[in-house]
Write a protein that binds this DNA or RNA. Structure first.
Lengths: 344, 344
DNA sequence: ATGTTCGATGACTACGTAAGCATTGAATCC
DNA sequence: GGATTCAATGCTTACGTAGTCATCGAACAT
């Protein structure tokens, strides 16, 4: 029957082996087991081996929940992200990848409607997260302030309107769009149409400002048109408006790649050739922009750098109590595709 | 000075208001505060109001960590997902959306290399998750078994090889690809090339089986070619092999949409017209497959249904101790695009 | 030989919540 | 009017870990 003792102890295993169990098995105190897992250097090699053997035998795994309760750190970073959109998905993935290398996990809070954000933020508060990424350009000022008041590290990702309210990391939206505008001017465009996604998104506003300022300085006309969503479909649909427009533009600047893809295909469906009849630019540098079917001129965001900086801001939270929140701006790179290629 | 008492208590607020603080403020016991938040019906209305007022005043938010420690439930579902790929990103987003409506959160464990999975699984074990989604078709049998032994609800998402080992939810990969094969036969294809992504992925194997079986039954030739990755680039590159092939195929079936996009563009770059010279099918039904530039014939997975079923399996974990794990198979729908349109 | 130092270890407790059990007071019944 | 019942609430403890402090013994210096 003594041979059954192993099975016996594994019965208790079902609902969790604790450090106390390991301590008993190894003939040491719970404190020593804890030390073996948190600061192994403070335990003699002999004891350490004994404990590790016992732990392996019982299948002991430290309980992060309990550790978090005691240490007040969860090693979990929260991310508030819109439920849709290629861009945000790619950002999310990058965060997850980079956090994994730092032994942090990402807890996802996605929201479909801007109105859902409040519910999400309430839910966020319950988890004692080590940090929170606000990855959406439509989060309101009051919500940002509420997050700042939570007393936990926060960073706004690519949300220009958050600058000065909470620490933020963004690509240089204004300069990027400005450079794209210069490129169009240099390519000969004189009548430019700007297609935004959702005008309430702060990225949308900032990007448009970059375009209109530069175009204005060079005496080039620029009109704003709102697609209504940051989606392919919205872009496809708005293409119809573009072709009917008078005077007909010779270039279209779009706020985001995903919308630009839709505009691209919508224009083609309407019989407009890009770039022969109309130049086209996007923004974001999604991987699809390099696909042969599009080969879109766009501003490529170095997502890996942006994310790395955001994580840095979150984890090294050395805010002197009441100083201004940091604001990191990362420059972008223009990708020159055939959608703005000079046609001889 | 008594006017400062408010500020005084908010100083303690900095590092977390607890139910004890609320109890003191409301003049009740901690237990009563707890009841107000977990089973309000057991508290008299007068007391309830008092407590709720005090809680609101102090900005009390229940600590989920502590609750989890006590209740042994975290309300968090883990997801082990590959770090790349449009398909998995869309699945992930859908999980997050649906779980949010059930007051569950999604903790992300992404991995870049198949070899990283073991590390991820070790990390997963530390969190006492309420359930775990294994969303990858390359997780090994031993790893699946290890997860099953953890004693927590697990579901394999679209990983045919996991069937019978852990509960699983998949689209009908074999039947779907079989139906696409029939469609090609009916459209007149007689020499078919099958392009897989990574042959070790169980979806890849199952899909190929569906194609080859049906094609074989109808006396149509079928060769397997491996792209090497489930990416656009891999597809683009393999297109070169396709055009050089003898006898030249009249249709290409691809294991996944993303690879198919690459094949599509690669073929075009090589001067091959789809569908005039060659028919093309994908698999997954990514949103891009409907984009005008591709208009790809593919098998559309009802991701929302698949995810809903997976969540159902996870949350209603009524496994009779040693019965066979459930296996849910959801049929797909063919999307007929112009890549297989009969050309007169 | 005795005091000193230091590494190794154990006992104890706090973290914030929830659930079981104990207590109270008021309303009900005979 | 006293016993019974029940709703409302308080008291206590357990969840699993980590840090503080105390203890112990061995190595070392005087």
């Amino acid at each position: 029957m003594s041979s059954k003792s192993g099975a016996d102890s594994s019965r208790r295993t079902r609902r969790g082996v604790t450090s106390v169990d390991v301590a008993a098995a190894a003939g040491v105190s719970q404190a020593t087991v804890g030390r073996v897992f948190s600061s192994p250097g403070k335990v003699s090699p002999a004891t350490r081996d004994k404990v590790q053997d016992a732990a392996a035998q019982l299948g002991y795994v430290p309980n992060v929940i309990a550790r978090s309760l005691k240490s007040q750190r969860t090693n979990i970073i929260g991310a508030v992200v819109p439920a849709f959109g290629e861009y945000w998905q790619s950002v999310l993935t990058e965060f997850s990848r980079q956090l994994a290398t730092k032994d942090r996990q990402l807890l996802l809070f996605s929201f479909a409607e801007p109105g859902d954000v409040d519910g999400v933020l309430a839910s966020v508060a319950q988890y004692r997260l080590d940090g929170l990424v606000l990855a959406s350009a439509t989060i309101g000022q009051d919500q940002l302030i509420q997050m700042r008041e939570s007393g936990r590290p926060v960073v706004a990702f690519n949300h220009p309107a958050a600058t000065g309210i909470v620490p933020s990391v963004s690509v240089d939206n204004e300069a990027g769009m400005s450079r794209l505008a210069m490129h169009l001017i240099n390519t000969g465009a004189r009548e430019i149409l700007y297609v935004g996604g959702v005008s309430s998104a702060s990225t949308d506003q900032t990007r448009y400002r970059g375009a209109s300022r530069t175009l204005g300085e060079h005496g080039v006309a620029c009109t704003y048109l709102e697609a209504g969503a940051f989606t392919y479909e919205a872009g496809y649909k708005v293409a119809q408006n573009i072709v009917e427009r008078q005077p007909s533009p010779d270039a279209v600047m779009v706020s985001s790649d995903e919308v630009a893809f839709g505009v691209h295909d919508g224009l083609r469906a309407a019989g407009v050739q890009v770039p022969a009849d109309l130049l086209l630019t996007g923004f974001d540098g999604l991987s699809q922009s390099a696909w042969a079917g599009f080969d879109l001129t766009t501003l490529v965001q170095a997502t890996d750098v942006l994310v790395a900086r955001a994580i840095e801001v979150l984890l090294t939270d050395d805010r002197p109590p009441e100083s201004d929140p940091v604001s990191v701006v990362v420059p972008g790179t223009i990708r020159y595709g055939k959608t703005t290629a000079k046609t001889p």
